[in-house]
Design a protein around this nucleic acid. Structure first.
Lengths: 224, 224
DNA sequence: GGAGAAAGGTGTTTTAGTCACATACAGACC
DNA sequence: GGTCTGTATGTGACTAAAACACCTTTCTCC
């Protein structure tokens, strides 16, 4: 239950679903939802978990990834503010176990909704239904795109694409080779070698835990 | 519109969703659905198609795959009787373009439902909603499992797993190396070589367009 | 300033994919 | 039966990813 008026207003302002919903739905939402704080680095759901509730991220970021027996990882996608963990949604709707690991990367505020309630709203609320379907579909498309990349593209192309994506947040990024490897599902050495090669071509400059993108068009030329 | 009583009965018997649904929903379903016949080898939807309707496969089999510029392919999943093309479902619900290619592998009978109708039933019919969510979730889980395989497993392990899966339909399978390669997202030569290796170990016996699985436990030992 | 952790580097080996071409088999047609 | 043709499979040589094992550098914190 979320009953503070200020809190409610803050959620409405930060969450398009609520912004567009009827007053009636908002009331029901605030009655059923709980706002929880989760610290960075916390595992929310792991391989095989059952999902008794749906979490909608209100602030912060969650990483959903697969872990191989070898210890290698690959990031399936990230959940940002306003998104929900679709896998949770999908598990709830179909009552199958969760097939990956979800871990907070930053401190996260999340709205937790009991799964029964979330299911009922799919029936009763058009905006909620649209929200849930939109999430699942987008993720399905994301995962398929990722699969295509992994199956068909070379590592240097994938790293170039990755760098282009992160460069949108500015040319200087704090990131380690290990983190890049975990996102892309490869090993650190491979990332190191390819980044070295990029550095030789003047595309990027690396430093410990930091990477500066120098030549964005040069990287883009790599992706084809 | 499907109005023959015999036809209706046939669909009810062959399609669990209808079997479990109310008489009212069945009526609405038969009013909106059209039964179409699609020959083998026909492309139903391709990269970027918009989805104006939802097809539920009643008999036959559809393969959904990604095609790389290089010509290599990888099968995302197959749609069998009673399943629907989730990607279509997902496109309809979220109004995003179709991210793969769907092609009939056998002659297919499909029930075609206008997308508006399919959307409305998600609101109005609990069995339909369960059906659609179940489909999408299962596919999401399938695609994630496939991604895990591609990202983390060696080709010989993947082929072994593939053979184990097809062996469930009997030890003798009519399949070409090229088809296996297209399913797994690799090239024919790689498949040929690995199958030869398996043959040398007495795990399988190959012939033109045919493969006999000899030693299932031996293959299973490969998958770990 | 030294221990230990974290980040990054490099040589060697394994695996996957490419290219080019050889061979083998199944029908169709004479 | 023999020949032709298209599809299926085998294979050697090569390239280049990527894995593995191990090493060096840099930072942090006491």
């Amino acid at each position: 239950m979320i009953d503070s008026i200020e809190q409610q207003q803050r959620l409405i302002d930060g969450f398009p679903l609520l912004m567009g919903a009827s007053a009636q739905f908002r009331q029901a939402f605030f009655r059923s939802a709980t706002l929880v704080q989760i610290p960075a680095g916390h595992t929310i759901a792991s391989e095989g978990s059952e999902c008794g509730q749906l979490a909608v991220v209100f602030s912060g970021r969650v990483r959903v990834y697969k872990l191989a027996e070898s210890g290698r990882e690959i990031t399936l996608y990230r959940i940002n503010s306003g998104d929900s963990c679709v896998l949770t949604a999908s598990c709830i709707m179909s009552e199958t176990p969760f097939p990956a690991i979800a871990e907070t990367e930053t401190d996260v505020e999340a709205l937790v909704i009991p799964s029964r309630q979330a299911s009922e709203w799919v029936r009763d609320s058009t905006p909620w239904r649209t929200f849930i379907f939109g999430l699942i579909s987008r993720r399905l498309a994301d995962v398929i795109a990722l699969l295509e990349n992994v199956a068909f593209h070379r590592m240097d192309e994938r790293i170039a694409a990755y760098l282009i994506a992160i460069a949108s947040q500015g040319p200087v990024v704090n990131i380690t080779h290990h983190e890049i490897a975990s996102d892309l599902g490869t090993t650190r050495e491979v990332v190191s070698r390819i980044l070295k090669e990029f550095e030789g071509k003047g595309l990027v400059v690396g430093a410990r835990g930091k990477l500066t993108i120098i030549d964005l068009p040069g990287l883009q030329a790599y992706c084809r």
